[in-house]
Amino acid sequence: NTKMVRFKKGDSVGLRLAGGNDVGIFVAGIQEGTSAEQEGLQEGDQILKVNTQDFRGLVREDAVLYLLEIPKGEMVTILAQSRADVYRDILACGR
C-alpha cells in the first residue's frame, strides 16, 4: 500500500510532520490547496523517502529542515505508505 506522489514545490511543501526516530515520519496535517493535497497525501501517511533522502530513522527536525531546503519550483517526489493505525498510536503516546 505504498504510493508515490510527485509535484513542483510551491512556497512550501504543505505538510505538517509528526513522529521521528524509531517510529518514522508521518503526515500530521496537509495545507489545503497544496500540490501535496491534490496528489493524494493524507494525514497518517508515513513518509518513507523524499527525492533521494530516506526518511526512515530521521528525527522530525531533520525531516522538516530537508523539506524546507528544497528550493521553490523544484520537483518533489515522495514515497509514502498509509499507516493510519500506527499514526493513531503515535498520537496517543504524544509523540
Score class of each variant (00 low, 15 high):
I70P: 00
K9A: 01
D22N: 08
R83Q: 11
R16P: 04
E74M: 07
L41T: 02
I78E: 01
P71K: 07
K3P: 02
D89R: 12
K49I: 03
N51I: 01
A18H: 10
I25H: 01
G73H: 10
I78P: 00
L17H: 02
R88T: 11
K49D: 06
N51C: 00
V27C: 07
S82R: 11
D54W: 01
L48R: 02
V27E: 02
N51Y: 04
S35W: 10
V13A: 07
D11H: 08
E37A: 14
M75S: 08
G20R: 03
L65T: 15
S82E: 13
I78G: 03
V27N: 03
G29S: 12
D45T: 01
D85C: 07
L68P: 06
T77Y: 00
F55V: 07
V50W: 00
D85T: 11
I25N: 07
S35K: 12
L68G: 14
Q42D: 07
G24D: 06
Y87C: 10
V50P: 01
Q53I: 08
A63C: 09
L41S: 03
A92N: 14
P71R: 05
K9R: 01
L15W: 07
V5T: 00
A36M: 08
F26L: 05
T52G: 15
L67Y: 01
G10R: 05
Y87M: 10
R6Q: 11
K49M: 12
L15Q: 00
E43Q: 08
N21P: 15
V86A: 11
G20L: 03
N51W: 00
T52H: 13
V64E: 15
Q42G: 00
M75V: 11
L68S: 15
L68F: 09
D54T: 07
L41V: 07
L79V: 14
C93I: 12
F26Y: 10
D62W: 00
E74N: 09
Y87W: 13
V23G: 14
F7E: 00
E37N: 05
Q38Y: 12
Q53R: 12
A84K: 12
L65K: 15
S35Y: 07
Q31D: 15
V27H: 08
A36C: 09
Y87E: 11
G44V: 03
D54C: 06
V86N: 11
E32Y: 00
T77C: 10
L48E: 02
L17R: 03
V86T: 11
E74G: 03
G19A: 05
A92R: 13
S82M: 00
R6E: 08
